[in-house]
Amino acid sequence: MKKRSIKNTRVNNEVAKELTTIIRNVKDPRVSEWVTVTHAEVAPDLKTAKAYVSVLGDEKQKEDTLKGLKSAHGYIRSELARSINMRNTPEITFLLDESIEYGVAMSKKIDDVIKGDDDVN
């Protein structure tokens, strides 16, 4: 399976969707209730996957959520195997996705510049 194939794209989307559902059921108190799987990248051989998560909160909440997800790795993987019928259930690595915060910060900076230009004129 090619990395950019339609099948791989569908697998990535389905894994991200299922991980979001599974993470909502994780009972670890470290895992924030404001966590979202932004996207997943499953390797073409279906053995590994990177799950990019976005956490609404401060740095401590983000770190705690990642620790909680790593701790619940076995549960998450077994639930993924149960919900998606795949030849191999991928080994999941959770990574923090800060693109949403970056986009909000850039948008705020642009608004500040536009407001500054309006004040000058």
Results as ranks from 00 to 15, higher is better:
G116M: 10
T9F: 01
I76Y: 00
V15I: 10
A43Q: 12
E101L: 09
A81G: 01
L66G: 13
S107R: 06
L95D: 07
V11W: 00
S5R: 07
I6Q: 04
E18Y: 01
V31L: 05
T20Q: 12
S107Q: 11
T36R: 12
V113I: 09
E91F: 04
A40V: 09
E59Y: 02
A105Q: 08
P90Y: 15
G74I: 05
N13H: 00
G103T: 12
S32N: 06
K17V: 00
I22P: 08
R30P: 15
M1T: 11
W34P: 03
E101H: 07
L19H: 01
E14Q: 13
L66A: 05
I100R: 05
F94L: 12
S78L: 07
K2A: 12
V35I: 15
K109D: 01
D112E: 04
N88R: 04
A105W: 11
E63C: 04
S54V: 06
D111L: 00
E98C: 13
R87F: 06
A51Q: 14
R30A: 10
D45N: 12
K60D: 10
V104L: 02
L56V: 03
V53C: 10
E33P: 01
I92R: 05
A40P: 02
I114V: 08
Y52S: 04
A72E: 10
E41Y: 12
D28M: 09
L56M: 09
N13T: 14
A105Y: 05
A49M: 07
K108L: 13
I84C: 05
R30F: 10
R77M: 13
N25K: 07
M86L: 05
T20E: 10
M106K: 03
T48K: 11
A51T: 09
E59I: 11
N8F: 03
V42I: 02
R77P: 02
N88W: 03
N25S: 11
T36P: 03
D64N: 13
E14W: 04
T93P: 12
L96D: 06
V15H: 00
P90V: 09
R82T: 02
A105I: 05
F94S: 14
D28T: 04
D58L: 05
T93A: 14
E59C: 06
D64E: 13
K108F: 06
A43I: 15
Y102L: 14
F94H: 15
L80V: 02
K108P: 04
S99L: 08
Q61E: 04
T93M: 14
I110G: 05
A43C: 15
V120Y: 00
G57W: 08
K108C: 04
E63S: 08
T48S: 10
H39P: 00
A51L: 09
T38S: 15
A81W: 03
N121I: 14
D111A: 13
A72W: 00
D45F: 11
N88D: 06
L19G: 01
R82C: 05
N85A: 10
Y52G: 04
D64Y: 07
I92L: 13
K2D: 07
Y102H: 06
V11T: 08
D111Q: 11
E59F: 02
